[in-house]
């Protein structure tokens, strides 16, 4: 029953036979071995599974893998060049934007999409941009701070371009 999925993941072209019901998140985690993308709910509320699909943030547990056919996907592992850090990653680190770290890849990917469109988001715009992601540890204070810091770093040109 498998159908062919052709997709580019973190710059690497792939072709895999997948079952139609395979969720994109399971394709990324189990077929591609990219376990940085997490599953936190069944109903698309938590955003832990957020990846970039042709540059837009999407919830990979709320898509069939086959729906990504032909697309370019960026996961947290592919956001920065191997061994380097994206300004968002640096900012989350410097601003204590994470505690347990489970929601963090989803937040960083959603924030990457936000900053690609809005280089200087206000507090409210950050809230709207990240409304689809839940964090249980931080109270969000340092996540907001980290996104602002990353935006500033990227504006100041110290930054690599957004992945994906």
């Amino acid at each position: 029953m498998g159908q062919t999925l052709r997709v580019t993941v973190n710059g690497e072209g792939r072709s895999d036979e997948v079952e139609p019901r395979l969720l994109l998140v399971h394709y990324l985690r189990e077929t591609c071995g990219l376990t940085g993308t997490h599953v936190g709910c069944d109903t698309s509320q938590c955003g832990a599974c957020t990846v970039l699909l042709d540059g837009a943030a999407v919830k990979s547990c709320n898509m069939l893998a086959l729906q990504a056919d032909g697309a370019e996907i960026t996961t947290i592992e592919g956001l920065a060049p191997e061994g380097g850090l994206h300004p968002l990653q640096t900012a989350f680190w410097e601003n204590h934007g994470l505690q347990c770290g489970y929601c963090t890849p989803g937040f960083i990917m959603a924030a990457a999409a936000l900053l690609a469109e809005n280089h200087d988001p206000s507090d409210e715009e950050i809230g709207r941009g990240l409304e689809g992601n839940l964090c249980r540890c931080t109270g969000y204070v340092n996540i907001r701070k980290a996104v602002k810091a990353a935006a500033q770093a990227m504006r100041e040109g110290a930054a690599a371009p957004i992945g994906g």
Binding site: S44, L53, A57, L114, G132
Partner: peptide, 9 residues
């Protein structure tokens, strides 16, 4: 509607 990820799809 929903959130940015939902709106993208």
């Amino acid at each position: 509607v929903g959130d940015p990820q939902i709106r993208a799809r």
